[in-house]
Design a protein around this nucleic acid. Structure first.
Ligand SMILES: [Mn+2]
Ligand SMILES: [Mn+2]
Ligand SMILES: [Zn+2]
Ligand SMILES: [Zn+2]
Lengths: 143, 143
DNA sequence: GCTCTAAATGAAAATTATTATCATTTATAT
DNA sequence: ATATAAATGATAATAATTTTCATTTAGAGC
C-alpha cells in the first residue's frame, strides 16, 4: 500500500508544482526502490536514466516531497542526515545498526502520550520521530 | 537528578580513559548548562576557560561520553546532526520547531511495543529515539 | 618523584552534506 | 504560439565531521 507514482505526481500538481522530467525521474527512482535511500544514492540511481540531472535538483525535489509527506525521512544514529523512501502514511522505523536494514511499522502508540504532553507543557505538537535501533537476525548470527 | 561531574569522570576512568584537563573542561561545560548544546556551541563555551582546546577534542570527548551514555544525543528535524546534554538516564524530547527549546520527559511508553517488535521481527533491539516536534507557548503567541 | 609508553591532543587537510547564487531554460496558463 | 513565473544546473559557499600525523602528556610502575 505504498503511494503510487501517479498519486505522487497528482499531489505535486495539486499543490501548484510543475511537473518536470527531472521530478518525474526522482519520483520514479524512489517509487521503484523498496529501500530507504540517501540523497546521494538516489542521485546515482536517477543518473542512470537521466545523466544530466543536477544533485541540487534531487535535493530540492526530495525536500518538496518530504514537506508534502509523500516520502518519509529516516534519521538513524551515528552520522545522521535523513534518508528517504516512498511512504504509505505515518509510520515508524526499526533499523539494523549493522547492515542498515529498515523495517517500517505503523500504529498509533503515541496519541495518549501526545495529549498528555500538550496538556502539561502547552506545546502545540506537530509531529514526532520514533525509531528503534537494533540488530537484525542475520547480523546477530554473523557475530 | 542529572548526572554529576564526579560520576561522569568516575565512569570515564572506570572505562580506562585518561582524565585530561580538556576532558574535564568539556564535562564541566556540559554539566553546567541546563540546555542541549551543539558541538560547536560547546566548543565556544569551553574555550572561555580553555582557549587552546581543539574542536576535534570536543568532538572526540562528546563521542566517548555519548557512547558511555553519560550524555544524550538529540536529533530534531531539519538540518539534523545531533545535539547533546548531560543526561539523567533514559528520556525523550519535546522540541520547539521555532525557537529550539527542548523539554525532556521520561517514562517507559515503549516497552510493550518493543517486545512485540522483537517477537515479530527477530530483531534484538538496543535502543530507540523518540522525539516530538511542535511549537512552544511563546512561539504560538508570536505568530 | 622519575621514567616510560600508550593514549590523547591539536593543527591542518580531507571528506561529506547541504545550501545559496544566478544565468539559462522550460512548463503551463492564456 | 506567447509570456512569465518557476525550475534547473553549474558553481561557489557554508557547515559538519573525520583523517592524518607529529607532538605532548596522564598515569602506571618503579
Ligand atoms: Mn519508512
Ligand atoms: Mn535530553
Ligand atoms: Zn542487519
Ligand atoms: Zn518556541
Amino acid at each position: 500500500m505504498r503511494l503510487s507514482e501517479k498519486k505522487i505526481t497528482a499531489s505535486l500538481k495539486r499543490h501548484g508544482y510543475k511537473l518536470t522530467p527531472q521530478r518525474r525521474a526522482v519520483i520514479g527512482a524512489i517509487a521503484s526502490s523498496p529501500d530507504h535511500l540517501t540523497t546521494t544514492a538516489l542521485y546515482q540511481k536517477v543518473r542512470q536514466d537521466h545523466p544530466a540531472i543536477g544533485l541540487v535538483t534531487v535535493y530540492r525535489t526530495l525536500d518538496i516531497l518530504a514537506r508534502l509527506e509523500l516520502i518519509c525521512e529516516l534519521h538513524a544514529g551515528g552520522s545522521c542526515r535523513s534518508y528517504t523512501i516512498a511512504a504509505p502514511g505515518h509510520h515508524h522505523h526499526l533499523i539494523c545498526a549493522d547492515c542498515g536494514e529498515v523495517i517500517d511499522f505503523s500504529g498509533h502508540y503515541l496519541t495518549e502520550l501526545e495529549a498528555r504532553l500538550c496538556r502539561e507543557t502547552g506545546f502545540e505538537i506537530e509531529g514526532h520521530l520514533l525509531e528503534f535501533i537494533g540488530r537484525c537476525q542475520d547480523c546477530q548470527r554473523a557475530t
